[in-house]
């Protein structure tokens, strides 16, 4: 048996190893070092009107949600109706962070599918995404009245998550 003919087999076995580990890990579940830390400050232009800026400080005193999204992100489209649902419930305002996106594309998506956001801001070069440790799009943060991150979801928000985790959390945070 010549060595070079075994290489494909070895490569494949390594791949299987990775797949086996990957199978046992939920791609949506990520621990974040930012939990219970203050949400990083930023100042970004608003998507609808780039002349106006938004800062997280303006949300002080209320529980709010930061949702990282982009028009190129396919999983966000899956998440979209759930976010609309969330916004209709008026549980908490949602701020959309449009991550590494073209403004036209993002505006078109919101025009087409409806906007769940109180307002959306544009993080065109992904600077703020780095501060927030964005792994992938979409991501969702629940931030309390004092600007502390209380929960982070990587990957699309589901109806189940909304009912079991996010609504109860918002209720609890609103009481305190």
């Amino acid at each position: 048996m010549k060595a070079k003919f075994i290489i494909p087999l070895i490569l494949f076995l390594v791949l299987v190893g990775f797949l086996a580990v990957g199978l046992n890990r939920d791609p949506h579940e990520v621990p974040s070092p930012l939990i219970n830390k203050p949400a990083p400050a930023f100042e970004l232009p608003q998507l609808a009107d780039p002349k106006q800026v938004f800062t997280p400080a303006s949300m002080k005193g209320q529980v709010w949600i930061l949702n990282v999204w982009a028009s190129w992100c396919v999983a966000c489209r899956e998440e979209h109706p759930i976010l609309i649902e969330l916004s209709k419930s008026h549980a908490a305002p949602i701020i959309g962070l449009d991550y590494k996106d073209k403004r036209d594309d993002a505006m078109a998506l919101l025009a087409n599918q409806g906007s769940p956001y109180l307002l959306a801001v544009s993080d065109a070069n992904g600077r703020v995404g780095i501060d927030y440790g964005v792994y992938g799009v979409p991501e969702t943060y629940v931030i309390d009245k004092n600007g502390i991150i209380r929960f982070k979801q990587i990957g699309p928000v589901t109806m189940e998550l909304l009912n079991q985790k996010i609504y109860p959390l918002i209720n609890e945070l609103n009481k305190s």
Binding site: L15, F18, R25, W72, C73, Y135, G136, V137
Partner: peptide
Amino acid sequence: TLYPLLIDALHLGKISVGPP
């Protein structure tokens, strides 16, 4: 396509790879 999975399996974090 597999990069997000590989990085995750190595406990290096979670990422997504897009069209760029």
